[in-house]
């Protein structure tokens, strides 16, 4: 768990804790993930733009928490900020193979919100793999609207897997049956499916898991974690490279445990407070005139000058 007032120091991994915590209060656009020798490594958009094309034989992009339909003061134009994120994706020197969206596509699961998101995200010209956020299953049928639109070929409430360039990707749904305290939940049916899904894979197969709510306990008192996430990780612990990508908390956090690298992405819509720095989580109003900075463009500049985040964004397993 993060202690916000922790004295800054460099951990063994070279991460400056204060720099990391400051970073967490920023929201941004997206991350480019490159896969080299089976090891995913995150680059910020700024670094990706500067990277020599030949160094990224394969890449994909993660965006998250677009909240189309959100109109509150924390961001009254989520369309414009999603457009800015997609513009950055389109400007990458090497076209990513695909994009993943880690949920909260919409704010209220309304059809017009999904329509707007599809139109904007479609402008990237990339295949997109989705998982739902809790805001995407707010319809009376608890996710039917999401499944009708994005669930083709999935199972249960929308989980699935696929393979690309030697990496096995697993899309999990942990926003149905959210438990007391707001923690995510995967559920027995999905856990059983997960065990079968990976049963025939070599332990050397790189695994990327993505879901909306963090699978690890980022800050349980705010519901920032998944109560049975540990069971999913137990199923996957034999794999030599496991990368877990989540959204939900609208800020970058990363943790590495052995062969497992956990990463949460920024939102394209609005910021949320760092854990423990506010009475509650939720949309955070930033000073007038600075929204774009907080939502990405200037956030990239911040990252460019902050090597610690770049180190944080480099998964282990290597």
């Amino acid at each position: 768990m993060i202690e916000p007032d922790e004295t800054p120091h460099h951990d063994a991994d070279g991460i400056d804790r204060r720099g990391f915590l400051e970073c967490m209060s920023w929201a941004g656009t997206g991350l480019l993930w490159s896969v080299s020798a089976g090891i995913p490594a995150a680059l910020t958009m700024a670094k990706a733009a500067a990277a020599a094309p030949a160094t990224t034989p394969f890449s994909f992009v993660q965006i998250s928490d677009s909240h189309l339909g959100f109109k509150r003061p924390a961001n009254t134009d989520v369309v414009a900020t999603l457009q800015a994120a997609i513009a950055r994706v389109k400007a990458l020197p090497v076209k990513p193979a695909f994009m993943i969206h880690t949920g909260d596509i919409s704010h209220l699961s309304h059809a017009d919100e999904f329509d707007a998101a599809d139109q904007l995200i479609g402008e990237a010209g990339l295949p997109v793999f989705y998982v739902p956020g809790e805001h995407d299953v707010l319809d009376a049928d608890k996710g039917k609207a999401y499944l009708d639109r994005y669930g083709k070929g999935s199972q249960g409430s929308g989980w699935y897997s696929f393979d690309h360039s030697g990496v096995h990707y697993i899309a999990l749904v942990n926003v149905q049956n959210i438990g007391e305290g707001g923690l995510g939940r995967i559920g027995r049916d999905q856990l059983d499916w997960l065990a079968k899904d990976v049963s025939g894979l070599s332990s050397e197969t790189p695994i990327v898991v993505f879901a909306h709510i963090p699978l690890w306990m980022v800050y349980p008192s705010w519901g920032w974690g998944t109560d049975d996430g540990g069971q999913a990780l137990d199923v996957l612990k034999r794999f030599g490279s496991l990368t877990v990508l989540n959204g939900h908390i609208h800020q970058v956090m990363q943790k590495v445990e052995g062969n497992v690298s956990f990463h949460t992405a920024r939102s394209t819509a609005f910021a949320q407070p760092a854990p423990g720095t506010a009475p509650t989580p939720g949309p955070m109003v930033v000073p007038a005139g600075t929204l774009r900075q907080h939502l990405g463009i200037a956030e990239v500049n911040f990252v460019r000058g902050s090597e610690p985040l770049a180190i944080v964004d480099t998964p282990l397993g290597a």
């Binding site: 928490d65 909240h67 956020g133 805001h135 959210i178 707001g182 008192s221 519901g223 939102s267 939720g282």
Partner: peptide
Amino acid sequence: HRGLAPATA
């Protein structure tokens, strides 16, 4: 103690 979504409670 949060109940609904943290992006919204």
